[in-house]
Nucleic acid binder design. Structure first.
Lengths: 340, 340
DNA sequence: TTGAAGTGTCGAAGCGCTTGAACTGCCGGT
DNA sequence: ACCGGCAGTTCAAGCGCTTCGACACTTCAA
């Protein structure tokens, strides 16, 4: 193993000089810098992570806490995890994967041991027990999702309210007047999942504003449940021509059921999905959908923790940010003008 | 921050005694152990990861290298990542996520800096450039996948040959005589992807043995490509009644095309998929499928690195293991007796 | 009774790095 | 001629932990 001292000897300087060359924290002459850098390459030196962490009191690691199972579409979680990892590397950081089966202890352990300098929490609940733990330890963190009380923390999430509003606007623009909002299962609303509630209220507000009549129905996302939901919607409001779906599982069944009930999409009924692009593309017809920028979510979360870590290490008080990312409406084949 | 010394003082013993209580590496009296453990809890002591890594020359971290994009169905990757993380925790290890955009350097960096004690590589290619790098550094590693030359490494993978054979057997048992094997795109076979070749040769051998006639056709996994492939298969061999599909993208199209060509599944044609359970369940009819145990893949990989790490730290030469996991055939609704 | 072996604890020397303080020239200003 | 200041470098003291060797004491066989 090559150490700092080896490099110093090889370059004919002291260990601290090598350290300063590497960290850039003090001015070093051209000549010395060159010699040191050459030696580093020649010897294949890699600073020892443990020693560095111990001396500098910075591990250059952030922990990413991923949910074990969730309502979240799995490829999206993976995309976030990857964008977090790549963004972290830009800052010279690595990412430690923590699964949520450890619960609060995982976060505590990783922060208290100095294993991680900061934490990113995915799939945050409104009233998340990990949040007080983070606050108690003074751990720098960024949440992907929006809890009840975010003081002392930074958060980033999709702007679900805007997404809901976009759906309403799009259908209204196309002349639809009767809309059905097919949402998540009742349980999701009962536990006040933020994304579900915010989408719905954003949709509701805009729908009212645009004079739309609408029905919100929760749906478990199975074929049977979707069939039941759709039947009731059409019984209550036979003139419904617009559908907003926020439930990955219900999309496929809904399309099949509309078709088999003799309604052609988009001629007879328009469907807007709140789902990832990937999913929207894979149905036939391809779905008009409102989507949030997934990668951005990870990137922003990393910027937030990084900002907090450097602020804290400078003795400052990190500022709590709250970033809501604008969703994007992509018009595809599943929406069209309302039938007359 | 609470340190070892704080605990020692609080318990009225020396620092080394506390260390030995925690590591269990020397015998400690009941009484002392109790006092120390109490102090640990009372003070909320968490050993500092950096210091521990430095002194013990063990970071208690393994790196997991995930592919950025791949032929692998994403939720499966996530499932592996999670099972790796959980299995690692059982050994007191944490998992560092490395994306493959760093390429070989990522592996080198993480191992050379002592950040990770071992590495798990996912999505290994037959001739993977990261393998020589691992060997050169003497890094303990386990590969998920089977490279050309695995000497000095441990590997774990699904037994794709057995999976292929299972498909052949199942269809033969049901009386099918003409089979089409719908595989991955031509590119996958051209670069000799191990899983594709091994499945095919396992299938081929068993099909020959069972006296099946079969056609192997590569397919890009789009609707158009699947349509073309199927048309050609049916033109060449109109009597084909059994289909084996190893291509996530082709499954949906294939089912639709069979249906629209007037063939009912499973009455007129049987379909066996080589795909994750999750996928097999989501089609209608639900697919008879051959699946490998995903979680096991991660778990075994972890056991392998752990084994190697401890062997190496005892001065031994870690043994190279090669584990192939048995696939499982789950009969669902897409296969039935061959029509007469 | 004595020595050998075993048990439980401690002291101290690092592990490889960072960083504040101190040092050395050298320059320009007075 | 002298001093202050500055850029560039080095010294040395840790960071918090592990672990080797030593020590004190007990036990047990010869």
């Amino acid at each position: 193993m090559v150490t700092l001292a080896d490099v110093a000897r090889h370059a004919g300087v002291s260990a601290s000089t090598v350290s300063y060359v590497l960290s850039g924290k003090r001015s070093i002459s051209q000549e010395t810098r060159r010699r040191v850098e050459e030696s580093v390459v020649e010897l294949g030196y890699h600073p020892n992570a443990g020693a560095r962490a111990l001396a500098a009191r910075r591990s250059h690691i952030i922990a990413l806490v991923v949910p074990l199972r969730s309502d979240v579409y799995v490829p999206i979680m993976m995309e976030i995890a990857i964008s977090v990892t790549m963004a972290a590397r830009q800052h010279g950081y690595d990412v430690l994967l923590i699964t949520n089966d450890e619960g609060v202890d995982g976060v505590r352990r990783v922060a208290a041991s100095g294993l991680a300098d900061g934490v990113i929490l995915m799939d945050v609940e409104l009233d998340d027990e990990r949040i007080p733990a983070l606050r108690a330890q003074g751990t720098q963190a960024s949440l992907i999702g929006l809890p009840d009380n975010a003081s002392g923390l930074s958060c980033v999430d999709h702007d679900f309210a805007a997404a809901g509003a976009m759906c309403a606007d799009h259908l209204a623009d196309l002349g639809h007047r009767e809309i059905a909002f097919i949402g998540y299962g009742a349980g999701v609303y009962q536990r006040h999942a933020g994304y579900a509630e915010r989408t719905l209220s954003g949709f509701r507000a805009r729908a009212d504003q645009r004079g739309l009549r609408f029905l919100h129905r929760s749906c478990e996302g199975t074929f049977e449940s979707t069939a039941g939901t759709l039947a009731r919607v059409l019984a209550d409001r036979p003139d419904t021509t617009g559908f907003v779906v926020q439930n990955e599982g219900a999309i496929g069944p809904l399309l099949n059921l509309l078709r088999s009930s003799g309604r052609t999409v988009p001629e007879d009924a328009s469907v807007v999905a709140l789902c990832p692009e990937q999913l929207a593309e894979q149905y036939s017809p391809r779905l008009t959908a409102v989507t949030g920028p997934t990668k951005e979510l990870g990137r922003v979360a990393v910027e937030q923790v990084m900002g907090r870590i450097t602020a804290a290490s400078r003795g400052g008080r990190p500022t709590d940010e709250l970033v809501l990312l604008d969703p994007v409406l992509t018009v595809r084949e599943s929406t069209g003008p309302a039938p007359r």
